[in-house]
């Protein structure tokens, strides 16, 4: 195993999403696990090719929604029945149907906030700098090119061999990604 601290990995550039997905499959067949693909739009089948499992965003969203709903109703109950009760013609203090609209809105609010901030947190964003940005042509990753980066921390990583593997998969430009 060769591990060099100033190399983040090796990156190959592809022209089409099909080539990228194909390359990811082949690279994983070759035994590499520490890799990531970059595309200007979500490519169908790429997550499966990378072996990504179900993510945590739905669970976080559910928890956010539950917190918003339960917290919202509980808060209204506390305000209307406990801390600031108002006796209006003897009507019940826990007039729950009247609390439903706000409970509903807060459920949606809690779930949406959890979905967005959960997604950002799991993606470790904001992250202004990342080694892949050191590759000059990587600016095309947000326009019309598809990239595959095999990271140096992969146990199988070998600079020359890994680069050759990417070339054999019809990568246009294969370049080293420096770590700083």
């Amino acid at each position: 195993m060769e591990r060099r601290s100033h190399i983040y990995g090796v990156m190959g550039e592809f022209a089409t999403p099909e080539q990228l997905t194909h390359a990811v499959e082949k690279v994983r067949e070759a035994g590499y696990r520490r890799l990531d693909a970059y595309a200007p739009f979500p490519v169908e089948g790429l997550s499966q090719a990378l072996g990504l499992k179900r993510n945590l965003v739905p669970l976080i969203t559910l928890l956010g929604g539950l917190a918003g709903g339960v917290g919202g109703f509980g808060f209204q109950y506390w305000v209307a029945a406990i801390t600031y009760p108002m006796n209006i013609g003897g009507r019940p203090l826990n007039s729950w149907p009247a609390f439903i609209p706000v409970t509903f809105e807060l459920t949606i609010l809690g779930a949406s906030l959890a979905a967005v901030f959960g997604m950002l947190a799991l993606n470790k964003l904001p992250q202004p700098h990342h080694p892949v940005f050191n590759v000059h042509r990587f600016s095309h990753a947000s326009a019309d090119r598809f990239f595959l980066c095999i990271e140096a921390r992969d146990p199988k990583f070998h600079l020359a061999d890994t680069a050759r593997l990417l070339q054999s998969l019809h990568a246009h430009h294969v370049s080293e990604v420096s770590d700083d």
Partner: peptide, 21 residues
Amino acid sequence: AMGWRGSARHWHRYQSAYLLL
């Protein structure tokens, strides 16, 4: 852009979040 780099792992969660939203 908060450092968005189009990583497939990011898109994976992004799509879940977008669908849920």
